[in-house]
Simulated scan of single mutants.
Amino acid sequence: MKAIHITAALSLLALALPASAQNKQTAVANFVGKDGKENGRAQMTAAANGGVLIEVEISELPANKWVAFHVHETGRCDAATHYESAGGHFNPDSAEHGILAAKGPHAGDMPNQYVGQDGVLRAQIFDGMVTLDGKKDGIRGRTLMVHANSDDYRSQPSGDAGERLACGVVQ
């Protein structure tokens, strides 16, 4: 049996949808690094039964390292403030931070991602706790954030993930 590459399958899905449905079913985020220059992009696709698939490629990150990847609450990426403008993690249900927390996770908590030797993070991540619509769990108009350290999945309120390295507003 041949494996179908997920990107190709999503492209075929997008072609089958009318333009109005595509806009509701997909989103993009262009990432900006600490220097304020664009350094990556995420493409998001809403899953039929809820959740969002995020395909991401971001360059100019620390090589050979696990980093935290989260959804943050606001739609601002101001490099001059080290991305503090993005606010905290997206947490519409007031849960504790962390996949391993007893009363967690936040909707914006996602697994750590690995940055390769070339300094590029390439990943496909599914977040089943969010949507692309304007409902309480919608992430359109919020930010995706890459942190300098891995998330410990427990520490409150943000997993001791460290400095914010790259930020992208979900359009």
Rank of each mutant, 00 (worst) to 15 (best):
M1S: 13
K2S: 14
H5K: 15
I6R: 14
T7C: 11
L12Y: 04
A14W: 08
L15G: 11
A19M: 08
Q22K: 11
Q22V: 02
A27Y: 08
V28A: 13
A29L: 02
V32E: 03
K37D: 13
K37R: 13
E38S: 15
Q43W: 14
A46I: 03
G50D: 02
G50S: 00
G51V: 01
G51K: 09
V52D: 01
V52A: 03
I54C: 02
V56H: 05
V56L: 06
I58G: 06
S59P: 13
E60P: 07
L61K: 08
N64G: 06
V67C: 02
A68Y: 00
H72C: 03
C77A: 14
D78R: 04
A79E: 10
E84Y: 15
G87Y: 10
G87I: 09
F90C: 01
S94N: 14
A107P: 05
D109Y: 01
Y114P: 06
L121F: 13
R122H: 04
A123D: 12
A123K: 15
Q124G: 13
F126S: 04
D127A: 12
D127I: 12
G128W: 13
M129K: 08
D133W: 03
D133G: 07
K136G: 11
G138W: 05
M145S: 02
D151N: 08
D151T: 09
D152P: 00
D152W: 00
D152T: 02
D152E: 04
Q156H: 06
G159Q: 01
A161M: 14
A161K: 08
G162A: 03
G162R: 01
